[in-house]
Simulated scan of single mutants.
Amino acid sequence: MYYYSSEMLGFAAGIITTLALLPQAVKIMATRQTRDISLVWAVSMNIGIVLWLLYGLEKNDLPMIAANSVSLLLLFVILLFKLRYR
Rank of each mutant, 00 (worst) to 15 (best):
R35L: 02
T31I: 06
I49L: 07
V40H: 13
L73T: 00
W52L: 13
R84G: 04
L57S: 12
M8V: 08
T31N: 06
K82H: 09
L22Y: 08
S6I: 06
S6P: 01
R86G: 10
A13W: 11
I78G: 03
L75A: 13
M45N: 11
R86N: 10
L57Q: 14
V43Y: 01
L73I: 02
R84K: 15
M45Y: 06
E7Q: 08
S44V: 11
A12C: 12
L21A: 09
L22S: 06
L79F: 03
L9P: 01
Y85T: 15
E58L: 15
V50D: 03
R86H: 07
L72I: 01
M29L: 14
T17K: 13
S6M: 10
T18M: 12
I28D: 00
I15Y: 11
L39P: 08
Y2P: 06
V43F: 02
D61A: 15
V26H: 04
I47T: 03
G56E: 10
Q33Y: 07
E58C: 15
V70D: 03
L22K: 02
S71M: 08
M45C: 08
P23M: 00
S44Y: 05
T31P: 03
L21I: 10
V70T: 05
Q24C: 00
F81G: 05
F81A: 08
V70Q: 04
I37A: 02
N60Y: 14
S44P: 03
E7D: 10
G10W: 07
A67F: 06
L75G: 07
A20Q: 13
L72E: 02
S71G: 11
L54S: 12
I78Q: 03
Y3R: 03
D36P: 09
Y4F: 06
Q24H: 00
L80M: 13
L62C: 12
L19W: 07
L51R: 03
L75C: 12
I15H: 11
I65N: 06
V50F: 07
P23T: 01
K59A: 14
Y2K: 09
W41M: 14
A30I: 06
G10M: 06
A12Y: 08
G48T: 03
N68S: 04
I47D: 01
A13P: 08
K82A: 11
L21K: 07
T18N: 10
M64A: 12
M64W: 05
N60P: 10
I15K: 12
M45H: 07
L9T: 04
S38D: 08
L74I: 05
L72N: 02
L53A: 09
T17M: 14
S71A: 10
S38I: 04
K59H: 14
I15T: 15
V40T: 15
Y85Q: 15
A12T: 13
M8H: 09
A42L: 07
F81R: 12
P63I: 09
I37T: 04
G10V: 08
N60I: 15
F11S: 11
I47Y: 01
L39Q: 09
A30D: 09
M64D: 05
G14A: 12
D61W: 14
